[in-house]
Computed example of a mutant assay.
Amino acid sequence: MTKPLVSVITPTYDRPEFLLSAIETVRSQTYPRTEHIIVDDHSHTPATDIVPSDDPNIITYRHDQNKGANTARNTGIDIATGEYIAFLDDDDEWEPTKIERQIDTAEQTGARAVYTGVEQELNGEIFATQTPNLNGNITRDLLTGAPLNSTSTIMFHENIFDKAGKFDEKLPINQDWEFYIRASTVTEFAAIPEPLVTRHHHDSQISDDYIGKRDVTVPRMLEKHLDLASSYGVDQEFKAVLQFSLGATAVRSERWSAARYHYFRSLLLSPSTTVLSRLLALTFGRWSYIPAQKIRRALV
Rank of each mutant, 00 (worst) to 15 (best):
M1Q: 11
T2E: 10
K3Y: 02
L5N: 11
L5V: 06
V8C: 01
T10K: 00
Y13V: 10
Y13I: 11
D14W: 03
L19G: 03
S21H: 09
R27D: 15
S28E: 09
T34K: 00
I37P: 08
I37S: 06
D40E: 07
H42R: 14
H42I: 02
S43A: 10
H44A: 11
D49C: 04
V51N: 04
D54N: 13
D54R: 13
D55W: 03
D55L: 11
I58K: 03
I58Y: 03
Y61M: 06
R62Y: 02
G68A: 01
A69D: 08
I79S: 11
I79H: 14
T81S: 09
Y84G: 03
I85H: 08
A86V: 02
A86F: 01
L88Y: 05
E100H: 06
E100L: 11
D104S: 13
D104A: 15
R112P: 00
G117D: 01
V118R: 00
Q120I: 00
E121Y: 01
E125W: 04
E125A: 10
I126Q: 10
F127C: 08
N133H: 12
N135I: 07
T139Q: 07
T139K: 05
R140D: 13
L142Q: 13
T144F: 15
A146L: 14
P147L: 14
N149I: 11
T151H: 01
T151V: 09
H157L: 06
N159G: 04
N159T: 15
D162L: 06
K163H: 07
Q175T: 05
W177C: 05
E178N: 01
R182V: 10
T185N: 04
I192D: 04
V197F: 08
T198E: 02
H200Y: 12
D208G: 12
I211Q: 14
V216S: 08
V216C: 07
V218K: 14
M221G: 12
L222E: 15
L222H: 13
E223S: 12
K224W: 00
L226T: 12
L226E: 14
L228D: 02
S231N: 06
Q236C: 03
F238M: 00
Q243A: 04
L246Q: 12
V251R: 15
E254V: 10
W256G: 08
S257V: 05
A259K: 00
R260K: 15
L267Q: 15
P271L: 02
T274P: 00
R278N: 13
L279M: 02
L279T: 04
R286D: 05
W287I: 02
W287D: 06
I290D: 05
A292P: 01
A292W: 08
R296G: 02
L299I: 05
